[in-house]
Write a protein that binds this DNA or RNA. Structure first.
Length: 493
RNA sequence: GUCUCCUUCGUCUAGUGGUUAGGACACCGGGUUUUCAUCCCGGCAACAGGGGUUCGACUCCCCUAGGAGAUGCCA
């Protein structure tokens, strides 16, 4: 049997980590089995639908390099793949159920339903529809319809018996029919189907072989099986994926921080890192390997290695993965990736000047191993392009040194700076070592005042490399400013 | 409230009856170094609890506890 799986998001919000993990698992499963990965847009919630969300879905999958074999924009043999374009189909099948007496019209207002739920909550009763309209006579129904009262179509869940489905991970999952959500809505009053109807109808006609979806769907699994039975169809194979949680163990959501993929993208996470990390929550290959490219996962992924327990999303580990992938990039590639961030922060001009580009290219080797996120580049490299507006004069003076000593160090440096800028890395270091020896201080005590003077911070890329990037003129200028500060301090006691 | 699913270091996980319970992130030390970072080395740290089954249980079964999810004219 050909493997056909689908990712079926609803365009009501930005693609988030949990959703994309489901998409990835489906995609990898399809690829590893030589099957088809189908994208289906479940836009049946007209209230919450947004065009932005739909665009985000496409751009996010594109960014991750996930291509669908059938779906919107490319079509396929079982389209359309956007549910709003399949509108009539759902009505047709809801009507069929109605005719067969397996569903019924419900005229309850949302006000009544709300009140009902409130009372159930208060009375600590079990929640759910009270099947108020289940036994309306045909006359009553006709009368209400001709009176123009809006209605929905509800599924008749049997009172007796039990329903089960086979889950690849969980084994046999059984539910008593009386515990299934009582008579859920299949077709809404606006004529659009609910998820329950739409997913069953579409999965059937799209010949979906496996359903990989989050475990939050387990409770409705039995309902869906009942639906398949009502239509006389056989259900696909289920595989309920463990959920992705926040630090507090609750379902991952906005309050845990960034959860949408665009946010990660904007902050400078690489798709490689996202794919790799996200795939490792809930899935693992073995005990000695955790780096996987998308291409490798397309081959190695397997359902058997999926974990049953929910996993906590660890931002720290994602960041670590990101740093690892940044360091795997070639310098030209990394340069290209970093440019937009420098422009956005106004560190360099847009478009870049040749002079700036020269510096950016030259600085990358110094920057690369200091980046966790691409966006880190701005803070790290600002001193190369911008004057230092204010820095801590106290930071200029290294530990175990006084102001006078620091002044002497900087003056010594000033006298040789021209040689340093034009020298090679090692040669430059030798010159500084000479100063250190002469003044009987450590090399670090020579370089630290220079570092602070030139970069404005005690933390910076290697200082010798940095001054060569900045050039003699700027370096001298900044050392002089630092010296003035220190001298003023001496005068003021 | 009811139903369902889950339970190995703080976190992600390996482990399918016999292991000093392994790895990674984080954290803490140490080293390299020009600060930071990178990198290297080391350390800390787990089988939720209780019953069985068995010569032997992290592994199989049951119970308890805890956690999560569902219970929408949202998906």
């Amino acid at each position: 049997m050909e493997v056909r799986v689908r990712y079926a998001p609803s365009p009501t919000g930005l693609q988030h980590i949990g959703g994309i993990r489901t998409a990835l698992f489906n995609y990898f499963f399809a690829r590893s089995k030589g099957g088809k990965f189908i994208l289906r847009v479940e836009d049946t919630d007209r209230e919450r639908y947004t065009e932005e969300a739909l665009q985000d879905l496409y751009t996010t999958l594109d960014w991750l390099g996930v291509k669908w074999d059938e779906g919107p924009e490319i079509g396929g043999p079982y389209g359309p793949y956007i549910q709003s374009e399949r509108f009539d189909l759902y009505r047709e099948y809801a009507d069929k159920l109605l005719e067969d007496g397996k569903a019924y019209r419900c005229f309850c207002t949302s006000e009544r339903l709300e009140k009902l739920r409130e009372e159930q909550k208060k009375g600590k009763k079990s929640l759910g529809y009270d099947r108020h309209c289940r036994n309306l006579t045909q006359e009553e129904v006709n009368a209400k319809i001709s009176a123009g009262i809006p209605s929905v179509i509800r599924f008749k869940v049997p009172f007796e018996g039990k329903t089960s489905f086979e889950d690849v991970l969980l084994g046999k999952v059984t539910r008593k029919n009386k515990d299934i959500s009582p008579d859920p809505v299949l077709l809404k009053s606006d004529g659009f189907p609910t998820y329950h109807l739409a997913n069953v109808v579409d999965d059937h006609f799209m010949k979906i072989s496996h359903i990989l979806r989050a475990q939050e769907w387990i409770p409705s699994g039995a309902l869906h099986v009942l639906l398949y039975e009502a239509f006389g169809w056989s259900p696909p194979v289920y595989c309920h994926l463990p959920m992705v949680m926040g630090k507090d163990g609750q379902k991952l959501s906005k309050r845990h921080g960034s959860t949408s993929v665009v946010e990660f993208r904007e902050k400078g996470y690489l798709p490689e890192a996202i794919i790799n990390y996200v795939s490792m929550v809930g899935w693992s290959y073995d005990d000695k390997r955790e780096f996987f490219s998308r291409e490798e996962l397309e081959k190695l992924f397997s359902l058997e290695k999926i974990n049953k327990a929910p996993g906590v999303f660890d931002y720290k580990k994602l960041e670590w993965f990101n740093g690892q992938y940044i360091r795997k990039k070639s310098m030209p590639e990394l340069t290209g990736l970093v440019l937009p961030y420098l422009k956005k922060e106004g560190i360099i001009s847009d478009p870049v000047t040749d002079k700036e580009m020269e510096i950016v290219e030259a600085m990358m080797p110094l920057m690369a191993e200091r980046l966790h996120l691409l966006s880190d580049i701005s803070k790290l490299s600002a001193f190369l392009f911008k004057d230092i507006t204010d820095y801590d004069a106290a930071a200029l003076v290294p530990k175990k040194m006084n102001t006078e000593g620091t002044i002497r160090v900087l003056e010594e440096i000033l006298s040789v700076i021209g040689n340093v800028v034009n020298a090679g890395e090692e040669e430059a270091e030798t010159i500084f070592r000479g100063i250190a020896e002469k003044l009987e201080v450590k090399l670090g005590s020579v370089l630290m005042p220079l570092r602070v003077a030139v970069t404005g911070s005690t933390v910076s890329p290697p200082i010798i490399g940095s001054i060569r990037l900045i050039g003699e003129e700027k370096t001298v200028e900044r050392i002089k400013i630092a010296l003035e500060k220190l001298k003023r301090e001496v005068e003021n006691g």
